[in-house]
Design a protein around this nucleic acid. Sequence first.
DNA 1: AAGTTCAATGAATTTATATTCAATGAGGTG
DNA 2: CACCTCATTGAATATAAATTCATTGAACTT
Lengths: 195, 195
Amino acid sequence: MTREEQKAQRRQLIITNALELFVKKGYSETKIGDIAKASNMSVGLMFHYFESKEQLYAELVKMGVEGTNFPQEMNFENPLDYFKCFLDELFKYALAEPWVLYMFVLMSQARRGEGVPEYIREMALSVNQIQQPAEVIEAGQKYGYFREGNPMALAFTFWSSVQGVMEQLAVSPELIKSGALPQSDWLIDIIRGAK
Amino acid sequence: MTREEQKAQRRQLIITNALELFVKKGYSETKIGDIAKASNMSVGLMFHYFESKEQLYAELVKMGVEGTNFPQEMNFENPLDYFKCFLDELFKYALAEPWVLYMFVLMSQARRGEGVPEYIREMALSVNQIQQPAEVIEAGQKYGYFREGNPMALAFTFWSSVQGVMEQLAVSPELIKSGALPQSDWLIDIIRGAK
DNA sequence: AAGTTCAATGAATTTATATTCAATGAGGTG
DNA sequence: CACCTCATTGAATATAAATTCATTGAACTT
């Protein structure tokens, strides 16, 4: 393997380990030394690959911002499918590939801002999570696709619930293994309501 | 005011400010100096009232453990009321009194363990959040009160959603002011399902 | 009123962790 | 092979935050 490939690979390894640690222990409580140990490297070497802990975290959030493709197009006959598709995709990937789950949770953390530098928080917040869903809900309510209620509050509740579930999944590997998994329909009923 | 009352009052002030800060910034990122400043006291004085930052946090979690009264008794004709009552109470108090909201979120954080010493995490985990609801759901499913599905997974999803909503509320004071609030029925439908 | 206690302070100390750096040697290149 | 580059290390340094401590003065006790 060429030196350059080697380097890219180790850089990727750091990123992967850092993501998992940041998600499981939070930003402040994740020590550079922890990431180094998880990656079998010396502490000093971390700074060869990344300028600082903060910049490493910022890079992860940046990847999250770029990789977040909340469906923008609306080609669904039934607007419920907009949410259904989103959740199905999310669960499918999140359960198959811890990376996706962790990335999702990292973004929640960064948006919440627990111990995260402010400019990073703003970066994470730039992915608007509530406005668009609220509009879809508002439009769909006229045709009875969604339950009655303040569209913002509905979008907020739905989105907070999804985040809550993902965060718990991220720290509950045993649940994932047991197969007792959340179903997207259950969460959809938050906004659809009982028929 | 007597010296003793004075002391009790200032101690309480520290606790109140610490709770809010821990919830909004997380354990590690909340500095003793922040709590001191919020309480208009010197840093040194913090250590007159509390042995250490860790012990202060532990005390908060202990209060949470003792104050958590997940309804143990089941005198409901319809088991859905078990959840409905719980949520109604929770929202009622959490919206009226930030203390309740923050305490709830602190417990979630402590259970999740972000940057929290392990023995504190275990203390927080001692309040079992999933087992009992899962049993209620399992029993109720036989009579059609709840939707089909793995009772553990349903309880997990419901509980994670509640936590997610509360955590978002705790960092979204503007939402609370706007009045666009989550309704307990919306979350109940996670486990009740569409009829 | 004199003496005692203890809340309160801010500066000094300790500790933990991020960050820097000089030294080493294994790949790569002519 | 001789030279150069740069990945890698571990020790040294810087920094920020927790914790300790000597000192002060106000509130209680007698």
